Amino acid sequence: MIQVRVGSNQDFLRLTADSTEDGPPRCLLAELQLDGLSASVLLAQHYATGFADLAEFFQEHGDDWRGWDGVRTWESLEKELRIDASHQSGHVQLRVTLQRFRPDWGNDGWTATGDLTIEPGEQLSRIVQDIKVLVTGS
């Protein structure tokens, strides 16, 4: 089972790939852990690209570790996970949103949002490499 932790020891987004076969994962488990909050959703891969766009999203931040303007956003196929990234005060700030929709009458599901801070040097480089391994399965 391949896992990637994005954030600190206490506050993090953990992505876990299914390990049923070799190659890219068919789904990812996204778990958000913050002080007093724990939420998780299962993400289905895009049939054509898998999770390659997630790796590209983090690679952009690694390439631009000195900073960028505005907010960059990645969203899963079914919109269960959204990551908004900005560069503020010399750090990479991630706003992570997990949500689960329920088609039941009168029940819209739930949403959990939290902020994570990443150091733009070694920590970000490690995350970029780990996510590449996660989404390729090797």
Rank of each mutant, 00 (worst) to 15 (best):
M1W: 08
V4L: 05
V4Q: 02
R5M: 06
V6K: 00
G7H: 04
F12C: 07
L15T: 03
L15G: 02
L15H: 03
A17W: 00
E21N: 15
E21Y: 14
D22Q: 13
P24M: 08
P24R: 08
P24S: 11
P25A: 05
R26V: 00
L29S: 02
A30M: 07
E31G: 05
D35K: 14
V41F: 06
V41W: 03
Q45E: 08
Q45G: 03
A48C: 11
A48M: 14
G50N: 02
G50R: 01
Q59A: 14
Q59R: 09
H61C: 10
H61G: 04
H61R: 09
G62P: 02
D63F: 07
D64E: 15
D64Y: 03
W65Y: 14
W65E: 08
R66M: 15
G67V: 05
W68Q: 01
D69Y: 02
T73D: 11
W74V: 05
W74H: 09
W74D: 04
E75I: 10
E75D: 05
E75V: 12
L77M: 13
E78M: 12
K79V: 08
K79Q: 15
D84H: 09
A85T: 04
S86G: 11
S86P: 03
S89P: 05
L94M: 12
Q99G: 13
R100V: 06
R100S: 12
P103Q: 14
P103L: 13
P103N: 15
N107K: 11
N107S: 09
N107F: 15
D108G: 10
G109M: 10
W110F: 15
T111L: 14
T113C: 12
L116T: 03
I118Y: 02
E119H: 05
L124W: 00
I127L: 10
Q129M: 10
L134F: 06
T136R: 09
